[in-house]
Every structure is written in C-alpha cells, then in structure tokens.
C-alpha cells in the first residue's frame, strides 16, 4: 500500500535519515521503533509532506507522492497524527473534528462521519463543546486520532501515541489502535516503547542513526536480544 525507498532527510548539515526502506501492506500495523533521534518522526513527516525529502521515493497506492504538499498527501488518503497530539487547543472538540472532515464535499457526509467517531470515542461526545486545550492528555490523544479519521483516510500514521500518557491511558489508546486494525485500517506506528509496539504490530522495522538495522515480524523481533541491546546498551 505504501512503500518508502532510499529515503534520505537532511536538516541543514545533519542527516536525520540516511537511508530508510520500508513497505506497509494493506490492513496491517507496521511499527517503526528505535531510540530518540533515530529518524522515526522525520520519516513520518516526510511521508506526510511536512518534511523535505533530500533523496528517495514515497509511493502510496502506486502513486508517487514524494515531495507533495501535506494538504495534497492528506487528500490522497494518508493521515498523520503528529507527535505531541497538536490538537487545536483554542477550538472546541466539535471544531477540531470538523476540520478533520474538511475534505468531505457534502456536509452531510462529514456529519455522518462525525457520528461514527463519537460512537467510537464516547468521551468526545461528553466533551463535545469543551475547548481542546481543556482535555487531559489521553483525551487529547483520542481527539487527535478521531480528527485524523474524520477525513476517511485509507492509512494513518501515528507518531508516538503513548507520549506523556499515564499507563492506564496508554492501554486505552493501544486497545483503540488494535480496534482500528481489526476494522481494516492500515497503520504505520512510530513508538519508542518497543514492547508495547511489538505487542500490537504485525511487523516492525527498527531504526538506529537514520538507518534500518532490523526488520521482521513482531514476534521475531520481540524475542530478539538485539532490540534489548539497542535500547539499554546492555
């Protein structure tokens, strides 16, 4: 469904991503794991069009989307849930959702979609008129995911959904991701908490210093000592 070939990203003189190749198959969760600074978020940003690609190619459903503007990539059916959630704090939950569905031409369709989201995230119905900034971290993460789903994407990119969340909330968020997977959504998940990511993913790719160092099924990687070593230096 999505393939990234020979991706390279530079910030000034720093090569944040040296060479990343990966493919995500339709309906699976691919986890992109690695320590901070390994180039995970940059890779997601490059796919979504937020980060300039220095070299390489990004192909989605057979169409080359390398270097397209973020709004164009979004309209092609790829939604990014950015790191740190970045919900619109001064807007209500309703307005946040509405912007997520802005690409729908008939308003009725957007309303229908919103109803689906409120079913999926009952907490958002409760805080429908509340300002996004007044939600807790976990609720904001739900809102960010719901907002991305509003545009009926065929694939979502999740950047560190567990970041800064309390353990119970992390479980809730990850249950939800599993639920989306069951419904057939294709997901590229960036997560630094490896075990958590491996529990939920079908396959995983490990990045270090901007390069792919390991890849395989989640099961294979979970039992690999290399992962433990890369993280704890032990």
């Amino acid at each position: 469904m999505l393939s990234v070939e020979g991706l390279k990203i530079r910030y000034g003189e720093v090569e944040a991503v040296r060479r990343v190749d990966l493919t995500v198959e339709s309906g699976e969760i691919l986890a992109l794991v690695g320590a901070n600074g390994a180039g995970k978020s940059s890779t997601l940003g490059a796919i979504a069009g937020l980060v300039r690609v220095a070299a390489g190619k990004v192909v989605f459903e057979g169409v080359d989307i390398t270097g397209l503007a973020p709004e164009v990539v979004a309209r092609k059916g790829v939604a990014l849930v950015p790191e740190g959630r970045r919900i619109f704090a001064s807007l209500t939950v309703a307005d946040n959702l509405r912007l997520g569905g802005a690409v729908h031409q008939p308003a009725a369709e957007a309303r229908l979609r919103e109803e689906e989201m409120l079913e999926l995230f009952p907490i958002l119905r409760r805080y429908y008129r509340a300002k996004g900034g007044n939600l807790s971290g976990g609720e904001q993460q739900m809102l960010a995911i719901a907002r991305a789903l509003m545009g009926k994407p065929r694939m979502i990119l999740l950047d560190e959904p567990s970041l800064g969340l309390a353990p119970q909330l992390i479980d809730t968020v990850f249950d939800l991701i599993a639920e989306l997977r069951r419904k057939g959504m294709t997901i590229l998940l960036v997560e630094q908490n490896v075990a958590l990511a491996l529990e939920i993913a079908d396959r995983a790719v490990v990045l270090a210093n901007g390069e792919v160092v390991l890849s395989g099924t989640a099961k294979e990687l979970a039992s690999s000592d290399l992962v433990r070593q890369a993280y704890l230096g032990a």
Binding site: R75, R86, F88, D95, L99, V103
Partner: peptide, 24 residues
C-alpha cells in the same frame, strides 16, 4: 464556516491545518 474555523486553527498551528487536507 469550515474555512473560518480553519483560519482560527491556522493561527494556532498552520502545519496541522494542512495535514487536514486544507490548502495553505
């Protein structure tokens, strides 16, 4: 309006508005 809401949002975080498929 959607565009009006997008403008209020863009004042806060322009990039994320574009991620919603709304052209800059």
């Amino acid at each position: 309006s959607v565009t009006g809401t997008a403008m209020r949002a863009a004042a806060e975080d322009f990039d994320v508005v574009r991620l919603m498929g709304i052209p800059a």
